[in-house]
Design a protein around this nucleic acid. Structure first.
Lengths: 181, 181
DNA sequence: GTCTATAGCTAGATAGAC
DNA sequence: GTCTATCTAGCTATAGAC
């Protein structure tokens, strides 16, 4: 008779997520995860071959959550408003949980089905908002700005004064206006 | 009679830089640095109190190098061309040495004198290229785009096909055109 | 699936002789 | 400033009983 399960895959991932959110992925240890879920570290190896496998599941979990968040933002019924809402939601997520957000751009690229990818979502709206021929470059311009601004803001890289939030808003406005059809 | 110096601060920093460039800052170890410069690890502690102190010097060295590189790019005599050249140089550096580039936005923000900061350089050119009233936000827009695009490109985050380089160029063009006075 | 015990490694950092 | 020797700490991962 096997031992009774004292935890679950979902709880393990949730615990690991919380630890990454607080301390960053580099400092995630199997021992800390085990302690949080209330088991001993070696027991984790019954579910995950190694630390990398656990971290992979955490990344997938974060990726899915972000995708859901941005998809929910893109429901205004207007392509331009959707783009603005997506940008705001991404920026907000990055500031709220920088370590989780960083996970999306760390290590081997996540393989995400196209129909589930935020990239495809932005591209779709951009093809309506602006000239379809230029949609790919325009989408990359917008996403790069949001990503770059968010990570720089998290890193404390804006130190010339002025309102950082105002800069974000005006950058977003200018970008949307200049890509508009 | 004290022992003869077998190395120097410059060589130690250079060695650490090379290791960070190759493997990333997280994996920089005092033992590896010592081996590369040809001394024993404990000897490093005569010059640096701890690993963080050494890494701090590496960051400062990279920061100074990047600043010099971008400042040299901004000498075309024309503000708009300077901005384009800065953007290209930053993008190129980030792709060439992603781990060193990442160092600039990692950990506690680097304290850089304003007159030596790239931020001030871009702001200066932007105030000539575009409307001075909007220069701060426009500078942040431009730098965020370049930074975001570069890090996403390094992370392999552009997977919808098309030419990534063409997207960068057209994004840069659009940005410069739409901020022009 | 849980546990205890432990192997095995790597790293940061200190002590003290020269 | 260099060395050897060593301490301490933390971590990944495995073995094997229950």
């Amino acid at each position: 008779m096997p031992a009774v399960a004292r935890t679950s895959a979902a709880k393990i991932i949730a615990a690991a997520r919380r630890l990454v959110e607080r301390h960053g992925a580099e400092r995630l240890s199997m021992q800390d995860v085990a302690q949080v879920v209330g088991i001993q570290a070696p027991s984790l190896y019954k579910r995950y071959a190694d630390r990398a496998a656990l971290l992979r599941d955490v990344r997938l979990s974060v990726s899915a959550q972000v995708q859901r968040t941005l998809a929910r933002a893109a429901t205004t019924g207007n392509a331009s408003d959707d783009l603005r809402a997506i940008a705001r939601a991404q920026h907000s997520y990055a500031l709220r949980a920088p370590h989780l957000y960083a996970l999306l751009f760390t290590g081997v690229p996540l393989a995400v089905a196209d129909h589930e990818s935020t990239a495809a979502l932005v591209l779709d709206r951009m093809a309506v908002h602006g000239e379809p021929r230029n949609a790919l470059a325009a989408a990359r311009l917008l996403v790069s700005f949001v990503h770059g601004f968010s990570t720089m803001e998290c890193a404390g890289a804006f130190h010339l004064g002025g309102s950082v939030e105002a800069s974000f808003d005006s950058g977003l406005d200018l970008l949307l206006a200049s890509t508009k059809r």
